[in-house]
Amino acid sequence: MKIKSMAFALCASMLALSSSVYASRPADFGNKYQLEEMVVLSRHNIRSPLSGNGSALGNVTPHKWFNWTSGPSELSLRGGQLETMMGQYFCKRLVSDGLMTENYIPAEGEMRFYANSMQRTIATAQYFSSGMLPVANVTIEHKFAPSKMDPVFNPQLTFISNEFMYQAMKEIGSMGGDAGLQGIGKNMTAQYRTIEKALDLKDSPNSKTMIFRLS
């Protein structure tokens, strides 16, 4: 059995959190089905925080991150190592299932690696492909210069109908009451207090210049 085409998409969207592989081995299909195509969605691996030390978010707590091996929002060295291991796992699984051979070099268009145009996702795809196809010199596809969000992976609503608005406001009201979104916030006071304590907010640099109030 051979896969005719395979596509890997490395996303920065929470809508694409699944790192699913095909669920069944070829033997499970019997003679009734033939696996022809497979799409794998995956999130990027370990990255550094979106904001570095000295930023507004960094000053919300007196605690400091350790020195990351990458710039803010970029894939870390450890993330690259782990993603290479993930690619090696896919390689071993596909080889053991008879879907490709060891040190396989796919034909043109047989396998595609499509990443969001962020450094962390492009790098993740590069490390993954190196682990899975170490001698194939895979090209990572992305649409824009790093680091610009690809609309394909950007979970934004492009069309909103009156019916959608009505249903959305109805669901917000069921959680926040007449106060809507503010009501939802008031219902989370206990959670905010937990965060405040964990961050030692009162001792943060921002506490010297800003007033934090939780009602």
Rank of each mutant, 00 (worst) to 15 (best):
E110F: 09
Y166N: 12
L94C: 05
M111R: 06
G173A: 01
S73P: 05
H142E: 06
M86A: 14
S20W: 12
R120V: 07
I211G: 00
V95S: 07
L10N: 04
Y166A: 12
L199Q: 06
Y104I: 11
K186I: 00
M86C: 09
L35P: 04
V40N: 14
L199K: 03
Y192W: 05
A12Y: 10
M175E: 13
V40P: 07
N45M: 14
T209N: 05
T101K: 15
F144G: 00
G173K: 03
A27N: 12
M100L: 15
V60K: 00
V40I: 15
L75E: 12
P146H: 02
E196S: 07
Q34D: 13
I195N: 05
A9P: 01
M85P: 01
S96K: 10
T139Q: 15
K197C: 03
T124M: 06
A27L: 13
M165K: 12
S18P: 04
W65H: 09
N206P: 01
R213I: 09
S147A: 05
A179M: 11
L214H: 02
K32F: 08
F128M: 07
Q119L: 09
A190Q: 09
V21L: 14
R120P: 14
E171L: 10
M38Q: 13
M210G: 00
M85A: 11
G109D: 06
A168T: 04
F29W: 07
Y22M: 11
S129H: 06
A16N: 15
G58L: 05
P146G: 00
N31E: 15
N59Y: 03
A7Y: 05
N137Q: 08
P151F: 07
T121P: 03
Q191I: 11
M165D: 08
F128D: 01
L50C: 10
N31F: 06
K186H: 02
P106E: 13
